[in-house]
Design a protein around this nucleic acid. Structure first.
Lengths: 202, 202, 202, 202
DNA sequence: GATGAATGAGGGTTCATTCAT
DNA sequence: GATGAATGAACCCTCATTCAT
């Protein structure tokens, strides 16, 4: 009756998932999602292929897990900032800052942020996650408009532009392989976006 | 079977590549890049798998070709607008308009516009193409700054933001499957970006 | 944990095998022999995979056990009826009745009755069991012939035909998924077989 | 433009399928359906695994093909005899004779004749084929009853018994590994079945 | 030049079995 | 004795690529 206690089991599970997460990220960073194979992960983690299936139902589950774990902190930060009682424009700035800082510190984050469109059909959760983030930001924009701080523009479109420009830039950075520090980008980004978004008559 | 003259051969080559381009695009639109197989292309074009290899070195060459041909008109439009003698802010608006209109008319364009980062290692030409476009736009921004029309912000960063927001939005649209018309997005987009970019003291 | 006495151990062993038998049958009924996995059995019984191996050498042993336990009552009934002092033709009728009734009541019985030929190499005991049943029936046939009740036909062949027609019909029923009640089949079956087997000059 | 003409292609296809049929049968005879693997077939035929997939969509297709090809002659013989203008009882005798002779000559036939119940879910065609045969035989029985040659028994049940006893015996033979010649079995079989089936008042 | 049959390297997945705890 | 995590062999299937015709 030795084996593991519930606690130990959970710890083991967490440990393995941690390992998988880290190595999968590494592989994705190096070879892209297309280069991610169960064999590759298993080898990197140092277990056999079969073992992986004790922790993940299938490859999709691995990808989902990696993406979720990558995106979750981003979503958390967005929601937290969104709920704070800062001014709308400051909220948007903070979010951009948080994201660029995070990406600068771990470029692997981009995996979670990039859509990879056509793989999406099989990972609907990814869209959901993204939408959650969008809604949080949209709310900020709406607040800004309602309070008169922002111009009366479509909140949905503004949000798309805001998110699009952040993610677009991050993709671009990852594409070129050189990541700017947040303070090299965000001020300019916010000057542009907020410069056009702020209500001059306010 | 009579030999083909050089001219005929070239024409044949162009014809085949045309066919491949069209059908490959169709397949990508339907099934994504992952659904693109040499067999699928060959069948769609109506030739045998082997024949494809007489026109393209390998699958990567097909993808490169498709992407290039997709991106070329975009690049062309950008360069042409860039070289025109419109005001810088109008140039930027025109480019955004052109791109959104094109994507709205043929959603397959996104294939060429989305980075699909990690497939990239094998398609360096894609980066080059993108950079060419970036440089054309950067020049517009520089002109605007030099002429005093734009604020003194980093042209590189401004360009990244401009391109990033456009491509980011397009990815977002393709993700959600609903494509806005250019006139539903571009005015807002330009109001934001140019609102913050234009030099108020000008 | 106190050691178990021999008696307790035996009881435990019987208990476990009982459980395995019941749940394995259930699984086989639902998903077929191919759907029977050690994990599936363990989960159904509520023990771990490893524990199963303390009671059965391997998967084959499980299958053997299940088949044996399934076949045993059939064999028992046959032998009992065979040893009774009924007339031979009545014995044969009773046996057919018993089997069809049993199968009708628990369709899982067919597992034990159907040969599944080529899995057989690994389960020689199955053949033995079957042969035991055959010999019991053969004896009835011989008695019938010796007593002049039956025609002078090869007892072996008659037995094969008798058993074959019963098992064949059962397979057919299981194939079509509809099981006749004994009284819908046995009278006809016996009218045919006995009609040809009974000695008219008797 | 060399390659194969349509005719040659068809011939090649037939050749390959022939090979697959023969070797698959051999494997099934030796190791059972469970021992039939694509790798095994490929190796036996002397081609690569991939090649098999140029001729068969998947493993199921191979199995279907083998079963169909095995069963077809049986079905053909049954239908031909059924349509002839022999007396019903002679028809039934002929069919039994044909089958036993065929099985005696190539024991591999049993593969097609044995149900293998639970694998069936994936091979519905097998049931269909079997049912076709059943219907042909049922018709003979009906004719016999209508003409007064046979007793008024349920044609369906009689057919089941007839077919069941034949297939059951064949399974039994294959189980024991010793195949009787048709003339060692069929007379007895028919004496039994027909003895009970024939209308005495006729 | 065209063809398409053949290849074979992977990829994902399942499961009987082992063994340290 | 019980456990269940780990294993690894096997299986099915896909597809880019080659090459004899």
């Amino acid at each position: 009756m030795a084996r593991y206690s519930e606690k130990q089991k959970a710890a083991l599970d967490a440990l393995m998932k941690d390992d998988v997460y880290r190595h999968a990220m590494e592989i994705i960073k190096t070879d892209g999602l297309g280069g991610l194979t169960m064999e590759g992960i298993a080898a990197a983690v140092g277990v056999s292929r079969g073992t992986l299936y004790n922790y993940f139902a299938d490859k999709d589950a691995v990808i989902d897990y990696v993406e979720e774990r990558t995106f979750d902190p981003v979503l958390g930060a967005i929601q937290e900032i969104s709920k704070s009682d800062l001014e709308p424009d400051l909220k948007l700035t903070r979010i951009a800052n948080w994201i660029f800082t995070a990406v600068y510190e771990d470029s692997a984050l981009i995996i979670a942020l990039s859509p990879v469109k056509h793989e999406m059909k099989r990972h609907p959760c990814k869209i959901e996650r993204r939408n959650k983030a969008m809604r949080s930001i949209e709310e900020i924009v709406r607040d800004g408009i309602d309070s008169g701080a922002f111009k009366r523009l479509s909140p949905v479109v503004v949000t798309e532009i805001y998110v699009g420009s952040i993610f677009g830039m991050i993709e671009s950075m990852s594409l070129n392989g050189e990541f700017y520090r947040a303070d090299a980008v965000v001020p300019t980004l916010m000057e542009l976006l907020l410069g056009g978004l702020r209500n001059p008559r306010h």
